[in-house]
Amino acid sequence: MTLSAHIRKVYQGVADRRQMFRLFDRHAQRPNRWQGDDSPLYRGEWFETDKSQHDYMFEILPPLFMRGDMFALREFLTGSIASVFYRLRIDGQVRHFHAYCDLSQPRSPAETRDGIVERESWPVKAMTHEERLEHIWSSTHDDYRGYAGERWPAADRGKRTVRVYGRGRADLKLLDDLTDEEIAAKLPVHLRHLPAKAAA
């Protein structure tokens, strides 16, 4: 199976409770929030959490459904997008994950599960360029990230921005336009030197 482009890892490492709740709405600052269909922003986003967070979320409300290695929260985030939590055995180790699945597509939870297993089964620890950008976005404080507004060219408005530092000044820059050096500077030290892997 080739990873679907919409199934994407948005945080490297295991999210603790504080980080998990931040990741639940990585797009909280988006312009015109709730005025359109926000489903594409969330569909397919996933990250790893730990057993205690998995169990905590299971106990909050009765799940919408339970299927072996997964359960879905009863409340929908937007449209048909819901939180699905997984308990998966990967390379002999039990691990826990959260993903946003489109429940209007019956195969979405299973396809997302398969995508997570495929991604986490890579024989070499690596990150794609897209995963580096998503990790930067996920781990940057709200005060230092945002969306291009009216001061930006029309073609760039609404795109994600982050604050970068250099030569004694700080500037906003489009997330997608970060150079390799800027990406390395924004990643934690333990992630900077991971080999790059092309997205499938």
Rank of each mutant, 00 (worst) to 15 (best):
L194H: 07
P195N: 11
W152M: 06
E45P: 01
E150C: 10
L191N: 14
A154G: 06
R169D: 02
L41R: 15
H27L: 03
E59N: 11
R22D: 01
Y100I: 06
L77P: 03
R89P: 04
M20P: 07
M57C: 10
M1A: 11
D69T: 02
L178H: 00
Q93T: 15
M70G: 02
A5R: 13
R132A: 01
Y11H: 15
A126P: 05
G68Q: 08
F97M: 02
R87S: 15
F58H: 08
E134Q: 13
F76C: 06
P123Y: 01
V164Y: 01
L73D: 09
H129E: 10
R17I: 02
K186N: 13
G13D: 01
K173T: 07
D176V: 10
K51L: 12
P62K: 12
L64Y: 03
G13E: 01
G166V: 13
R163N: 06
K173P: 03
G115L: 00
H129N: 09
F71R: 03
R169I: 05
V10Q: 07
Q53A: 14
L23G: 02
H54I: 00
L172T: 12
A184H: 13
G168H: 00
S52T: 15
H6F: 10
Y165N: 12
R67L: 04
R119L: 13
D16I: 03
Y147R: 09
T49F: 07
A5L: 12
G92H: 01
F76G: 07
A200K: 07
T112P: 05
A99F: 00
D55K: 14
F71P: 05
P62T: 00
R169L: 10
R192K: 15
R107C: 04
D25L: 03
E120Y: 02
R113Y: 01
P31V: 04
L3P: 08
R119D: 15
T49D: 15
L77F: 15
M70F: 05
L187R: 01
T2D: 13
Y11C: 12
H193F: 11
R17S: 00
A28P: 06
